[in-house]
Structures are given as structure tokens and as C-alpha cells.
Amino acid sequence: MSQYASRIAGSLSSPHKLRLPGLSGLAGRARTPRRVAMLSVHTSPLHQPGTGDAGGMNVYIVELARKLAAIGVEVEIFTRATTGTLPPAVELAPGVLVRHVDAGPYEGLAKEELPAQLCAFTHGVMRAWAGHRPGYYDLVHSHYWLSGHVGWLAAERWGVPLVHAMHTMAKVKNAALAAGDTPEPAARVIGETQIVRAADRLIANTAEEADELVRFYEAERRKVAVVHPGVNLDRFRPADGRAAARARLGLPADAFIPLFAGRIQPLKAPDILLHAAARLLDADPALRRRMLVPVVGGPSGSGLAKPEKLQKLAARLGIADVVRFHPPVDQDRLADWFRA
């Protein structure tokens, strides 16, 4: 993960790639940003991954911010306040501050309704910036298209580069829509196209994603940097092994355990695991006494719904007796599930 953060920082500071403010008099030498304004409108890095709209992007932002801070780059993360009791700012880690922005009602607002609140969110970001000296932020790093629109305006107003990570793309999702999933709206497609044109740097997780940015959105190849996501190897490692992890989780030592971990939504296709489990049991009925299929995570969106469709599918496939639904867990507990 440290190498990942270093590569991000290097990608941002290389003078032939991305020009940071305040370089006059430095004879063209590269300068690492001192402070980054990171934007995550629709989901807070403080939320539990696996619930509502909190998922891999939350982990990505938290780990990236921590590692950037560890190499001397301060990070302030702006996110929408979801309750009235939240303090204006929370220190996530040394050098990492989470700023809560009031934008729309605290509760009951779906992600699809957030575009109407971008003006209010941008206003909150600008108010926070107004209390600082000129040049306080060296760079804006936005995550997901909603944040990209706020970042576009902020970067232009502050005279700093805009770095954007799409995380998911509407055109790509619509081209491979899962059964039962809703197509992404035209407004998002238009918004993403605008961000691709406005951004100074686009961060892609893989070479394939970089190609998709060029193919679907006509991104300039020179503006796309491929930075593979890191893994926290201090946490996600074999540790004391499978048997010990199963004991901590209360799982049978001799069980056969195919695992799903993540938010429950059609795009992540947990149904494929259930169908696979059913086929395995059809092929080897004796496996039933040892099979256990944990589904660890909560439903996407408001978090108010239950994974009823998946439960009904398990019943229809005749495997309800081996499928177990578990609520989202913290990262240390998740590592145990992977070990098990």
C-alpha cells in the first residue's frame, strides 16, 4: 500500500505530467503536493464498508489518505453529513481530516437524488476553503462522478489541478448490465463525460479501465495514469491460519466454505455463488453435510431493505439450509473470513 501511495504522489508531482502551483523559481523540479482536498460526496470514509453505499471506495479513500499522510502529504476529505450530530471535522488519522458538509436532508436521501445537492455541497467546500490562506490546497482529488463535478469547480476556482478517479463508469456498467439492475441515467453519462474532459489527471485501477476511459469517454491517453490498488498486507495475511480463524468465527473445522463478502447488489452477482453451490451439491449430495455458504455484507442503497431476493433464490435452489447471511464486519474481522 505504501508503494501505491508513493506512486500516486509521484504521478501527481512529475512536472512533465501534471503542473502544480507554486513551482516558479524551482527550475522545473518536481514538487510533491503539501495538502490535498479529497472529495467523497455520496459516502463517508467513516462509514462501515458493506452497508448502504459504503464499500470498496471507502476503503480505497481511507487507506490512500493514511498513506499519503504518512509520506508527508496532508489530506482533507470532504463528505456529505448524514446526521445532524456529526462534528464539522473529525481527525481520521494524523494528517487526515474528514470535513462534514451540510447538503440536503441528513437522512432518507438516495444516491440517485444527490445531484440536486451538489450546489449546496460545493458551497460548503468553498466556505471551508475561504477560511484559509490562498494556496492552502495544492490539488483536488475527487472520487466518483458526483465528487468530480464539485472538484471541477473547486480546482478551477483555486487554480490547482483536478485528479479524478471514476471507480465505476456508467457506460461500462450499462454495457454489461446485470439482470435486475437499473441502467445508469443519461445525466450521469453526461456528467462523467464532462469530468473526463475537465480533469488534469484520470486515475485508472487497471490497464483495462484506462482503455475503457479512452474507448467509452474519448479520454486523452496522456491524461490517464494506471495505479493498481494496494492491499494492506499487515491486515490481510495468513496470520495464524485457517483453523484459528474458523474457531474465532465459530465455523466447523472441516467445512467447505465458498464465501461472498461485499454489498448485496446485482452488479456484484452474489447469485452466481448460490447457483454454483447448488450445482456442486447436485453433483455431490454428500457435500451438503460440510458445505457452508456465508454471505457477509448488507444491501446497497439506503440500507433499509433486506436481501430478500437472495434468500428466496437460496430457497428456490434448495440450499437455504447451507446459506448464512451475516452483517457487515470491520476489516480485521473480514480478514478472518477470508482466512477461513
Rank of each mutant, 00 (worst) to 15 (best):
M1F: 15
I8P: 01
A9K: 11
S11D: 14
L12D: 01
S14F: 14
H16C: 14
L18E: 08
R19M: 13
L20A: 07
G22A: 13
G25C: 12
R31E: 13
M38W: 02
V41I: 09
S44Q: 03
S44E: 02
P45W: 01
G50K: 00
G52R: 00
G56Y: 02
N58Y: 03
V59T: 15
I61F: 06
E63M: 07
L68C: 06
A70Q: 14
V73A: 06
I77G: 00
R80M: 08
T83C: 03
V90W: 06
L92V: 09
A93M: 03
P94R: 08
L97R: 10
H100W: 09
V101L: 07
P105R: 11
P105T: 07
Y106R: 14
K111D: 04
E113R: 11
P115N: 06
Q117W: 05
Q117N: 07
L118D: 02
L118H: 02
C119T: 08
A120K: 05
A120V: 02
H123V: 00
G124P: 02
V125A: 04
M126G: 01
G131L: 03
G131F: 01
G135H: 04
V140M: 12
H141G: 07
H143T: 11
L146P: 00
S147V: 02
G148F: 00
H149M: 14
W152P: 00
E156N: 12
V160A: 07
H164N: 11
A165Y: 01
H167L: 09
T168R: 04
T168V: 12
M169A: 15
K171N: 09
K171M: 12
A175P: 13
L177Y: 13
A178M: 06
T182S: 12
P183C: 13
P183R: 13
R188F: 04
T193S: 15
A199V: 02
D200E: 11
D200Y: 06
A204I: 03
A207M: 10
E209F: 03
A210S: 13
D211L: 11
L213V: 12
F216H: 13
Y217G: 03
E218M: 09
E220Q: 12
P229R: 08
R237C: 06
G241R: 03
G250W: 11
L259M: 07
I264Y: 01
Q265R: 03
Q265V: 11
A269K: 03
A269P: 00
P270L: 03
I272Q: 03
L273I: 04
L274H: 01
L274W: 00
R279L: 05
L281Q: 09
D282V: 07
A283K: 12
P285L: 05
L287C: 08
R289L: 06
V295D: 01
P299M: 15
G301K: 10
S302H: 13
S302F: 13
G303A: 12
L304I: 10
K309E: 15
I319F: 04
D321I: 14
R324K: 13
H326Q: 10
D332S: 11
D336H: 06
F338I: 11
